[in-house]
Amino acid sequence: MTMSTTSAGLEFHDVTVAYGRRPVLWNVDLTVPGACLFGIIGPNGAGKSTLLKAALGLVPLAGGEVRILGAPLEQVRARVGYVPQRESVDWDFPVTVTDVVLMGTYARLGWLRRPGPRERSLAAECLDRVGLADVADRQIGRLSGGQQQRVFLARALAQQADVYFLDEPMAGVDARSQERIFRVLAELRAEGRLVVMVHHDLRSAGDWFDAVALIDMRLVAAGPVAEVLTPENLRRTYAGRLDLLDEIGRAVAEGGRTP
């Protein structure tokens, strides 16, 4: 299922990924237009994170290809930003909030060059944007989960990318942080950037995304929220989890914003 676009931000063509002999993604063919907030939704183990990693070249493809902004990843790497899952790093690591945000500038700096005043002021700006200016010098372990997630977002902002990939940035995050993160993502979209985000909570999907893809190893459906999050599509994605489905059905029917 492909959405009509003028310029595609992100394209997956028949992408298949396997860990060992076991496929995790199965012939995913998906086109995401530029400048939108795009959600990748599906049950646990559906391959949502793997899809992001496939786009970022972090897992080998068994087949197919990914194009970002119409080009292969190697050509546009500098225009791609990434927010990994919060659990993927050791938060006891001896670095400060600012140190982590500065890492967003490293790729542009290249080998050996250290961040200077320009990078530092960019980092401060990014921290301010996610509302963490007052904890800039704190060790990263001494932050709440929501603040840690916002540190990762600030680091991605420091990458000054055109396409952003976020892996479950709302998981285990308090309401204030969610609000803040979402506002920043909406700003990025308004600036003409593409934001692709793995998300686990179906109920809030309608509030946040312009378009979504439902994934369960294969692509179930993709397109505008109202067209994709139908009871039929959800049943095909979350087969066998009927208790959840009723809840989803209600949420979709209400269509309103759920806190």
């Binding site: 970022l56 972090l58 500098a78 990434y82 990994p84 993927s88 790093v89 490293y106 790729a107 990458q159």
Partner: peptide, 8 residues
Amino acid sequence: LFAAASGW
């Protein structure tokens, strides 16, 4: 992971 994604 982030390092690899940003090309290092």
